[in-house]
Simulated scan of single mutants.
Amino acid sequence: MKLRTSDTSHAFFVSKWFQQLFERISPFLYGNGGPVIMVQVENEYGSYPKHDKKYLNWLRDLYLSYVGDKAVLFTTDGWYQNMVNKGRIPGVFSTVDFGTTTEPVLKLFGPLRKVQPNGPLVNSEFYTGWLSYWGDPLSTVDTNNIIRTMRDLIEANVSFNCYMIHGGTNFGFTSGSGSDSILKLDLTSYDYDAPISEAGDLTDKYLAIRDLLKEFNYSVGSDEEIKGLRKSPKGNYGPVVLEPVISLMESPVSTLPVTTEYPQAMETFNQSYGLISYTHVLTDPPKDPSVLQVNVRDRALVLLDNEEISVLAYTVINETPMPSTMKTGMNLTLIVENQGRRNYQLLSDVTKVIIHYYSYGQFY
Rank of each mutant, 00 (worst) to 15 (best):
D201V: 04
Y364S: 09
S251T: 11
Y358T: 13
S247M: 06
V36M: 02
E319N: 14
T260G: 08
A71P: 03
N157I: 03
I354L: 12
E250N: 15
Y273E: 08
K16E: 14
H51E: 05
I165S: 07
T101R: 08
Q20V: 10
D204A: 15
F269Q: 11
Y262E: 14
T328P: 03
Y237A: 10
N236A: 12
N331M: 05
L138W: 05
N32Q: 10
S94E: 09
V302P: 00
Y63I: 04
C162V: 11
Y262P: 00
Q20M: 11
L108E: 05
A199V: 11
G129T: 03
L112E: 01
M38D: 02
K107F: 12
E308A: 13
T140Y: 13
V122D: 06
P49E: 00
E225I: 06
L292N: 01
G33Q: 08
P90Y: 00
A313K: 07
L108N: 04
D142V: 09
G178R: 02
K50H: 09
T100W: 05
T325P: 01
K2T: 14
M164G: 01
Q116G: 07
F22Q: 01
D349Y: 02
S179I: 12
L56H: 00
V336A: 09
T333I: 08
L106E: 12
Y278F: 14
E125W: 01
D186I: 10
K70N: 11
E44R: 04
P233D: 08
G200V: 08
G228M: 00
W58I: 05
V253M: 10
G168F: 07
K227S: 15
R148C: 05
E224R: 07
Y30G: 10
L303Q: 01
S9C: 11
G178P: 05
P104S: 11
D305S: 05
D180Q: 15
M266E: 02
Y206E: 03
Y237T: 12
P257W: 06
D61L: 06
G34M: 06
R148L: 14
R151V: 07
Q345N: 15
Y314M: 04
F12C: 05
N343G: 15
I335R: 10
L346V: 06
E337N: 11
L347P: 01
S197Q: 05
V92S: 03
V350L: 10
V240C: 09
V336I: 13
R148Q: 14
D298G: 04
G119D: 12
R60Q: 08
W130K: 04
N270M: 14
L131Y: 13
Y133R: 12
R24K: 15
S232R: 15
V258L: 08
T101L: 09
N32H: 12
I246N: 03
E23H: 11
M1P: 13
P111W: 02
S359R: 11
T203Q: 06
S359A: 15
A300R: 00
D298F: 07
P289F: 06
Y357Q: 09
F216L: 08
H280V: 13
